[in-house]
Amino acid sequence: KSAVKALFDYKAQREDELTFTKSAIIQNVEKQDGGWWRGDYGGKKQLWFPSNYVEEMI
Rank of each mutant, 00 (worst) to 15 (best):
Y53A: 11
Q13T: 12
A12G: 10
R38C: 06
F8W: 10
K5E: 06
K1G: 14
L47K: 12
G35L: 12
F20W: 01
S23A: 12
K44H: 12
E30Y: 14
Q32W: 14
G39I: 01
I26K: 00
Q32N: 12
W37R: 00
I58E: 14
Q27A: 10
A3S: 15
K1W: 12
G43L: 07
G43Y: 06
V4T: 05
R14T: 12
I25C: 08
I25A: 04
N28P: 00
Q27D: 11
N52T: 11
S23G: 15
W36C: 07
Q27R: 13
Q46N: 11
E15Y: 10
A12L: 00
F20L: 05
A6L: 03
Y53E: 02
K11N: 14
E30P: 01
V54N: 02
T19H: 05
K22G: 07
E55A: 10
Q13H: 09
Y53Q: 06
D33S: 13
Q46G: 13
A3T: 15
L7W: 05
Y53L: 15
D16C: 15
K44F: 13
R38G: 02
D33C: 13
K22P: 04
K5M: 12
Q46L: 06
I26P: 01
A24K: 04
Q46H: 09
G34I: 06
K31S: 06
D40F: 02
F49N: 02
F8C: 15
T21R: 11
F8T: 09
Y10E: 02
G42Q: 11
W37P: 01
W48Q: 05
A24P: 03
D9I: 03
R14L: 07
D16S: 09
K11L: 14
I58M: 13
A12R: 02
W48Y: 10
E30V: 15
W37S: 05
K22Y: 08
E17W: 00
Y53G: 03
K31C: 07
W48V: 04
L47Y: 12
F8S: 09
A12W: 03
I26Y: 01
Q27N: 14
K45P: 04
W37K: 02
F20G: 02
T21H: 14
V54L: 02
V29N: 02
G42D: 13
K11E: 13
N28A: 06
R38P: 00
E55F: 08
Y41W: 08
P50N: 06
L47S: 12
K44Q: 14
T21E: 15
A24E: 07
L7V: 09
G39M: 02
N52W: 13
F49C: 04
S51I: 08
G34A: 07
F20Q: 01
I25F: 06
K31P: 07
V54D: 01
L7E: 04
W48L: 12
Y53C: 15
Y41A: 05
M57I: 15
V54C: 05
Q32H: 15
E55Y: 09
F8I: 09
K44P: 02
P50S: 04
Q32T: 14
D16W: 10
T21Q: 13
A3D: 12
F8H: 11
E30T: 15
K11T: 15
Q32L: 15
Q46S: 11
K11V: 15
W48E: 02
L18K: 06
D40P: 01
I58D: 14
N52H: 14
Q32E: 11
M57H: 11
F49W: 01
V4I: 06
K44C: 12
W37H: 02
A24M: 04
F8N: 09
A12Q: 08
D40T: 00
K44W: 10
G35F: 10
A12M: 05
G34T: 08
Q27C: 15
N28F: 06
Q13M: 10
D33T: 11
F20T: 02
V29A: 03
F20N: 03
R38I: 09
N28I: 03
V29G: 01
G43P: 07
V4Q: 04
T19G: 06
D33K: 10
Q13K: 12
K5L: 12
E55V: 14
P50M: 06
I25Q: 04
V4H: 08
R14E: 08
E56M: 08
K44T: 06
E30N: 12
D16F: 08
W37V: 00
G34Q: 07
N52M: 12
D9E: 09
E30H: 14
G34S: 08
Y53K: 07
K5I: 15
F49K: 00
T19W: 04
F20I: 04
D16V: 08
L18D: 02
G39H: 00
G42V: 03
D9M: 03
E15P: 14
L47N: 08
L7H: 05
G34M: 06
L47C: 15
A12F: 00
E56H: 08
S51A: 14
S2V: 15
I26E: 01
M57A: 09
G34P: 06
D33V: 11
N52G: 11
E15N: 11
K31E: 04
K45T: 15
S23F: 15
S23E: 14
Y10F: 07
M57W: 12
W36V: 03
I26S: 00
L7Q: 06
Q32K: 12
G35V: 08
Q13Y: 06
D16E: 11
F49M: 01
K31W: 05
I25R: 01
S2W: 12
T19S: 15
G39A: 00
W48A: 06
S51H: 07
G39D: 02
Y10V: 02
Q13R: 11
K1T: 14
V29Y: 03
L18C: 05
F8R: 15
T21I: 12
S51E: 08
K5Y: 11
Q27K: 12
K5T: 11
S2G: 12
F8P: 03
G43R: 06
T21C: 15
W36A: 03
E56V: 12
R14F: 09
G39E: 02
I25D: 02
F8V: 10
D9H: 07
V4K: 03
P50L: 06
V4A: 11
D40K: 00
Q27P: 03
T21K: 13
E56C: 13
A24G: 08
V29F: 01
D40W: 02
Y53F: 12
W36R: 09
D9G: 10
K11C: 15
T19M: 03
L7N: 06
F20S: 01
K44Y: 12
V54K: 02
N28C: 10
P50D: 03
K1E: 11
L7A: 06
V54Q: 01
S23Q: 11
I25E: 06
G34L: 06
K45Q: 13
V29H: 01
A24V: 08
A3H: 12
T19F: 03
I58W: 14
E15S: 12
M57D: 11
K22A: 14
Q46T: 05
E55R: 08
E15F: 10
Q32R: 14
Q46W: 05
R14C: 15
P50C: 08
T19C: 08
N52C: 14
K22C: 09
Q46D: 08
L18G: 03
V29S: 01
K44M: 14
Q27M: 13
Q27I: 15
S51N: 08
V54G: 03
I58P: 14
R38W: 04
Q32F: 15
V4F: 13
Q27Y: 15
Y53W: 07
S51W: 07
K5A: 07
W48G: 03
L18S: 01
V4R: 00
D33E: 14
K44V: 08
R14N: 14
Q13L: 10
D40G: 01
Y41S: 05
G39R: 00
P50Q: 04
G34W: 05
K5V: 14
M57F: 14
N52V: 10
G43A: 10
Q27V: 15
E15A: 11
D16H: 08
A6T: 06
T19P: 04
E15Q: 11
E15G: 09
E30Q: 14
K1Q: 12
I25G: 01
T19E: 10
N28M: 06
L18W: 00
G34N: 09
D40V: 00
V4G: 05
G39W: 04
S51M: 11
K31Q: 09
N28K: 05
T21W: 10
Y10C: 07
D40N: 04
I26N: 03
S51L: 06
S2K: 11
Y10D: 01
S51V: 09
